[in-house]
Design a binder for these strands. Structure first.
Lengths: 132, 132
DNA sequence: TAGGACCCTTGAGTGCACTCCAAGCAAGTA
DNA sequence: TACTTGCTTGGAGTGCACTCAAGGGTCCTA
């Protein structure tokens, strides 16, 4: 427990521009994520401004990982919905993540293949015997 | 030299639908590639239909590798132009491929990170202690 | 000579994942 | 009080990489 927290009894809250700075996601994107259901309805200040929690940041970090896997936004929304529905959706979530994992593995091996071709071409160019 | 070739003295030529079958690229995409300069002007039959050569197929295979690296179409076109310009562009081409190679390596390591997160989550779900 | 398969062109349309715009409210500072 | 900064909304716009439509030509077989 930090001093500030003990004093205020309030967990930290972040404005949209703080979250933008921490996550690298634009304010536009953050609002859009909320709108499409990729994250829960964010808490609001008395004047209606968003106040993100640490949990929101953690969720966004995980969503970021899903994004880098190449998972579509539609599938991420599906996943988010399953999480909101509760514990009984665990099997479906695992299935979704396993499917994604398989795709990532396939993608990595595709990239390794392409890497080999690039290496070969670059060696050709570096060597002298340059062709196409 | 195959028998057929010796007899006809003609290298094999492929129609657009043959190329579609061999490469998996749609006819639309093949025509579009030619239009934007991602491949040379394909030879035509006397009636104006495309006749692709083995060289064209090889080029398309290489372009396919570049595509899987995530290189943008604009950069691929740039590369194709450099190839058409001749031997004096070899250094620029190598530079372009090296930049791409670096991006691919970075992408692979991103994907490996994401894979670790997926493994962790899936284990959680499989374990029993399911959370979000 | 008719039918069907196959191909051509230009230009418009699609789906995705943002990204931006306009108009306006609220809080803090000079 | 006036100004600036930061935030709100719904809906429109953007860039990418295709993808399709319309209208027409050519070739082969019956």
């Amino acid at each position: 427990m930090s001093l500030t927290q003990t004093q205020t009894q309030m967990p930290p809250r972040y404005t949209i521009s703080e979250v933008e700075a921490r996550t690298g996601l634009s304010q536009h994107t953050l609002r859009w994520y909320e709108r499409i259901g990729l994250m829960r309805q964010v808490d609001r200040s008395h004047s209606g401004q968003r106040r993100f929690s640490d949990g929101d940041l953690q969720w966004l970090a995980f969503v970021g990982k899903l994004r880098t896997t190449g998972m579509s936004v539609a599938d991420m929304v599906r996943y988010a919905e399953l999480v909101r529905e509760g514990e009984h959706t665990v099997d479906q979530r695992r299935e979704l993540l396993e499917r994604t994992r398989n795709e990532v593995r396939a993608r990595i091996s595709e990239l390794n293949d392409a890497l080999a071709v690039l290496d070969f071409k670059i060696d050709l160019y570096t060597g002298k015997a340059a062709r196409q």
